[in-house]
Design a binder for these strands. Structure first.
Lengths: 210, 210
DNA sequence: GGCCGGTAACTAACACCGTTAGTTTTATGG
DNA sequence: CCATAAAACTAACGGTGTTAGTTACCGGCC
């Protein structure tokens, strides 16, 4: 049985199947044993291809982050920022169950660092001082991560009885579940637009000085 | 040994000790056995006071969320929004290790719902249409949660060698760790101000119509 | 005052988890 | 052709949340 003629496992297949489990059943549903079972293999065999479970998660996250688009900075910082933010959010929204992991802890993942590098470069070349570039990157990421957590609309339980009497202003909150995606997108766009508008003003002031 | 004359445990003591462990050693360090050990008790005894570990975490989260201040809406929607956002963020920042749990999943916790109710009420009484009130609440929460994840500044590893050559625009990123708190607060304030400024304009347009 | 039910602790166990050690077989490179 | 490395295996360790069943003590009732 050991060492089959044609390998059953590959890092790529492991990552793909792992992401499938996460997407379908949640982050907590991914265990090395369940993943192995899905791959017709015993758990220990995975460790021939993957250092540790956390490592595997980082690799999966890195793959997801590769869909983030920072090409817009070639045009100007505004479209750069906007397309970055939108594609970033879209990448996360595509795998909501993975967001808690991606958002948490150090981003020593290559794709994340590459994106950060491009953003910072795009902003400074547009005339933003270092400190501003950092803050703008941070603010935008807050919006993206916060909204990708899906925490708002999905945060309200769907049973109507909970709200009446106790939370009068939330009497329609149970409807949020249906429109969750739409509301979350609209709220994200609202905040992103406001942020960029606010930045435009500051940018003019900064570049007018010189 | 069983059933001591004076009870060793109480829900309150369990919650407090649980939060202590989380704050001191991280969310993952909290296990029922470790918590029990700290309380001079066996793990199973905890289940006389707590339904499940997840339940305990919700109760702890609820207690943390009780520090959020929504009283500002009595004044006007702008100060209401601002003090809500700041106190919300401060509450989370006080227990960063708990943030991933708080931010994730439905917020069926009483304190969270009470705050949401107050925010929605404050905004609609100020003249905001329902839909806007929802979106504004959402956007603001995105900022708070995103920034509380602290993921930005702390997200960059502190070793300088990582950046040079590979990510030219991030050559100073290794310094972020020292100033993490300051930068994160400044970025949050930047985005919050921009958001509120953007909303002010829209609010004038909306209220001028009627 | 004595019983008695509920409470709050216990021990033991189950099923799962991530991970490591050691074994076996196969493919591959010198 | 043989040695070595690779890729699967079995078995096990120490940890997890949780449940079942047991025991002793407290407060309230007859």
């Amino acid at each position: 049985m050991p060492r089959p003629s044609t390998p059953r496992l590959s890092p790529d297949r492991i990552r793909r199947t792992g992401l499938e489990i996460i997407d379908a059943e949640g982050l907590e549903a991914l265990s090395m044993r369940r993943l192995a079972e899905r791959l017709d293999v015993r758990a220990a065999s995975l460790y021939n291809h993957v250092a540790t479970k956390e490592d595997l998660l980082h690799e999966i996250a890195d793959e997801v982050m590769r869909e983030v688009d920072v090409s817009g900075f070639a045009q100007d910082w505004i479209t750069g920022l906007r397309t970055w933010a939108r594609s970033y959010r879209a990448a996360l929204a595509g795998h909501p169950n993975l967001v808690p992991f991606i958002a948490y802890g150090p981003a020593r993942r290559d794709a994340a660092l590459r994106a950060a590098d491009a953003v910072h470069g795009g902003l400074t070349s547009a005339g933003w001082p270092q400190r501003y570039a950092t803050m703008i990157g941070a603010s935008t990421k807050y919006l993206v991560v916060g909204s990708a957590m899906g925490s708002f609309s999905h945060g309200f339980p769907a049973d109507a009885a909970l709200y009446t009497n106790r939370y009068p202003h939330l009497s329609r909150a149970h409807l949020l579940h249906q429109k969750a995606a739409e509301i979350d997108t609209a709220s994200f766009e609202l905040a992103l637009t406001a942020l960029i508008d606010g930045l435009k003003v500051q940018h003019q002031q900064l570049t007018a000085e010189t």
